[in-house]
Computed example of a mutant assay.
Amino acid sequence: MSDQLQVTKTVDASPEQMFSLLSQPARHTEFDGAGMLRGVEPGSEKVTGTGDEFIMNMNQDALGDYQMKNTVVAYEENRKIGWAPSIHPIDGYTDKLGETQATGHTYTWELEPAGSGTKVTQTYDWSGVQDDNFRGFFPMLTEDQLSDSIDKVANAAK
């Protein structure tokens, strides 16, 4: 089994429109295909390059409310953006996770002009997960959820 899911589709929004939305963490709840995002912490308004960080408020059945710090690992304006989430704070949920290190996965969006729209490739990659306990949780999303996210970004970007 592969350590990633990848979905590619062409949508009716420009790369610039798509990138503008993807680079605004406060708007990520609009295209959350898994229904876990609850908002962004203040100070996370706009991504401007690799190394930028933003903290998302999250919720899911196993953990309840929690936070993920996302570090931007790919940034090419209007063409590519990606982030690597990690539980925040890194040792803040030992009561629920034990010593599990919830790091090593990425979400990357590639945007390519396609006529009047955009060919979008979203890659959800957990090949960098080192903790065997955490690796057992993957994939946490489905191809359908990734596809739904792409559609939601395109619709919100218009």
Score class of each variant (00 low, 15 high):
residue 34 A to I: 07
residue 78 N to D: 10
residue 74 A to W: 06
residue 29 T to P: 11
residue 71 T to K: 10
residue 9 K to F: 05
residue 80 K to D: 09
residue 56 M to Q: 10
residue 143 E to N: 05
residue 5 L to D: 10
residue 142 T to P: 02
residue 111 L to D: 11
residue 92 G to Q: 00
residue 156 A to Q: 14
residue 60 Q to P: 03
residue 27 R to W: 07
residue 51 G to S: 04
residue 102 A to F: 09
residue 57 N to G: 11
residue 92 G to P: 01
residue 106 T to H: 02
residue 146 L to R: 06
residue 78 N to F: 00
residue 11 V to E: 12
residue 158 K to M: 09
residue 36 M to A: 14
residue 17 Q to G: 04
residue 100 T to I: 12
residue 38 R to T: 04
residue 131 D to Y: 13
residue 156 A to S: 15
residue 40 V to F: 11
residue 130 Q to Y: 05
residue 43 G to M: 08
residue 129 V to H: 06
residue 63 L to M: 11
residue 46 K to D: 03
residue 2 S to V: 12
residue 124 Y to L: 04
residue 95 D to R: 03
residue 75 Y to H: 15
residue 152 K to F: 00
residue 123 T to W: 02
residue 71 T to H: 00
residue 49 G to P: 05
residue 129 V to L: 07
residue 88 H to Y: 14
residue 27 R to Y: 11
residue 39 G to M: 06
residue 77 E to K: 15
residue 98 G to L: 11
residue 150 I to R: 06
residue 139 P to N: 01
residue 129 V to W: 02
residue 2 S to L: 14
residue 145 Q to K: 07
residue 107 Y to E: 14
residue 3 D to H: 15
residue 36 M to Y: 15
residue 11 V to P: 10
residue 143 E to L: 06
residue 117 G to F: 09
residue 36 M to W: 15
residue 111 L to P: 10
residue 154 A to P: 02
residue 146 L to T: 04
residue 22 L to T: 00
residue 106 T to V: 02
residue 98 G to A: 06
residue 60 Q to L: 09
residue 19 F to N: 11
residue 60 Q to Y: 08
residue 125 D to T: 03
residue 55 I to R: 03
residue 5 L to F: 12
residue 134 F to W: 11
residue 120 V to I: 01
residue 131 D to E: 10
residue 16 E to K: 14
residue 105 H to E: 14
residue 92 G to I: 01
residue 50 T to M: 07
residue 86 S to F: 09
residue 123 T to Q: 03
residue 5 L to G: 06
residue 133 N to W: 04
residue 113 P to D: 08
residue 66 Y to V: 04
residue 26 A to S: 15
residue 32 D to P: 04
residue 114 A to R: 06
residue 98 G to V: 08
residue 126 W to D: 10
residue 21 L to P: 05
residue 149 S to T: 12
residue 87 I to Q: 01
residue 78 N to W: 01
